[in-house]
């Protein structure tokens, strides 16, 4: 199984994302923002960082990178895509996911080990978890406040599309303490916390993040064997 990791100018966590993909047992294909094809990958990770310096709005310029011209229709067609932090912002700017991420309500950059509850364990990227399971992975951002209008929030809740939710105090002012969401097919997932930083004992607060990548691998293998 080949999982692509996209590097934009200013991406920061692409190496860690690639490492997590390998740790889960998949092959990594490095994709460049200027690539106009996806090199036959079975899934894509959009990593964290500050693409294009976060100029204009986080993810706003990355959304129009050449690689996104091929990624957006592929994701709409069912290709599994995981957006982490800046990757989540890119997915919202691309309208692959609803809502937007704005500056933290307390105006400070936040870097903590964050407890999350997995609300939806049936997406391509969370099937290895149990619904209701609590996990602890790093959260680090300045603009992580998830916002959407009430109708969109109600729809996300009603359709079970809230994937992970913050446990305890709201770390950034996100509406309804939403940390991550999915599209209606469950193949596109975006979240602000960083599963790729919690995959190996001794590095990070836990190994709870590895199952995001293991979930995708299991889903892809299931498709092949079906």
């Amino acid at each position: 199984m080949k999982i692509g990791v996209v590097t934009f100018p200013g991406s920061l966590d692409d190496r860690d994302a690639a490492r997590a993909v390998r740790a889960a047992g998949a092959d990594v294909v490095t994709l460049w923002h200027g690539d106009r094809d996806l090199h036959g990958v079975d899934a894509v990770v959009l990593p964290g960082g500050f693409s294009y310096g976060d100029y204009l709005r986080c993810g706003a310029i990355a959304r129009f990178a050449p690689v996104m011209d091929v990624l957006v229709p592929a994701a709409q067609g069912g290709l599994p895509v995981l957006g982490i932090c800046n990757g989540f912002q890119v997915l919202c700017e691309s309208h692959l996911l609803p809502g937007a991420l704005i500056r933290n309500d307390h105006r400070k950059f936040n870097c903590v080990d964050q407890v999350l509850r997995v609300e939806n364990a049936s997406t391509t990227w969370t099937s290895a978890y149990a619904a209701g399971q609590e996990i602890t992975i790093p959260l680090k951002n300045g603009e992580g406040g998830f916002v959407a209008d009430e109708a969109t929030l109600d729809r996300l809740e009603g359709e079970g599309r809230v994937v992970v939710r913050y446990v305890g105090a709201n770390p950034n002012g996100s509406h309804r303490k939403i940390a991550g969401i999915t599209n209606d097919r469950g193949n596109v997932v975006g979240l602000m916390p960083h599963p790729e930083h919690a995959i190996e004992p001794g590095y990070g607060p836990s190994t709870d993040g590895l199952d995001f990548f293991a979930s995708a691998l299991a889903s892809l293998e299931q498709v092949v064997s079906a």
Binding site: I102, R103, N104, R107, V147
Partner: peptide, 9 residues
């Protein structure tokens, strides 16, 4: 209706 933390600062 969107919070403006920069404006608040």
């Amino acid at each position: 209706e969107i919070l403006d933390p920069q404006g608040q600062a």
